[in-house]
Design a protein around this nucleic acid. Sequence first.
DNA 1: GTTTATGCAAAACCTTTGCATTTTG
DNA 2: CAAAATGCAAAGGTTTTGCATAAAC
Lengths: 150, 150
Amino acid sequence: MKKSPEEIQHQLSHFMDLLKRAGVKITYQRLEIFQEVAKSQDHPDAETIFKKVRARVPTISLDTVYRTLWLLLDYGLITTLGQPRERVRFDGNMISHHHFVCRKCGMARDFYSHEFDSLPANEEVKGLGTVESSHVEFRGLCSKCLQDSE
Amino acid sequence: MKKSPEEIQHQLSHFMDLLKRAGVKITYQRLEIFQEVAKSQDHPDAETIFKKVRARVPTISLDTVYRTLWLLLDYGLITTLGQPRERVRFDGNMISHHHFVCRKCGMARDFYSHEFDSLPANEEVKGLGTVESSHVEFRGLCSKCLQDSE
DNA sequence: GTTTATGCAAAACCTTTGCATTTTG
DNA sequence: CAAAATGCAAAGGTTTTGCATAAAC
């Protein structure tokens, strides 16, 4: 589902509004980086975004890209695949299971559900390849972070 | 759901069997590392596993831990949270969506489903915290990797 | 005895930080 | 003009690699 130029434009206005209200400066670099991520379809890494933006802003540096991406994340304008700023974590539980992940502290706990083990894939998904398993991730706040924020 | 000592023992036999058949050497270090991950409940990182194993094998080094963990992953004896050996990836799509991920090449594609946006959490999950959203990940082989393996 | 794994140290890799300069509001 | 952001270079943290030694088969 590719975004229309109008939709990108609309998101861009929202982005500028949000920064303005927060007293954060709107720079040429930030606008370009935001647009690049907003129109991306393939979950790019920082380096990829850097290269694409550099084609239009030759003086941009990689650390500005990182700083901007974390800023966008803080303002809830983008998300990451998996937990950001984390090292690899290993899982010795080979029984099919699912996760509850705390969006604040990153705590991940297993739970089990036969129903979720084999959710039905629709035609759109079947067209992408062969589906072997399904995994559910519930996101929210864990009891501990809930208490801390009260 | 904590594993019983018998279950760990059973998994250990399976592990040794598999390595033997593959002509891979069974070492003290590998046995200890495997057991540590097998009994873990909290998705530890390499450093954590290293520290725990070092308590029993004082001469072990961190690079052996990494080499062994990737070995275990290759043999399908453990998994990782998120994609292994990957940098952070950003997602500019803020509409609630789900993923199909290829287990071979790591390709991740979005798809949409109102049903999956709010799957019902059971009592076990509700006890962990407040659930805000649900996300489904289908895993399998993408069309491209499927072709390559034929 | 031959092959493979280990431990060490050094490298590679991705991401972050300090600081002088430039840009924004 | 004051405050904040950029670009540079250097540092930080995690993961990987080359190689001599040690262990497994």
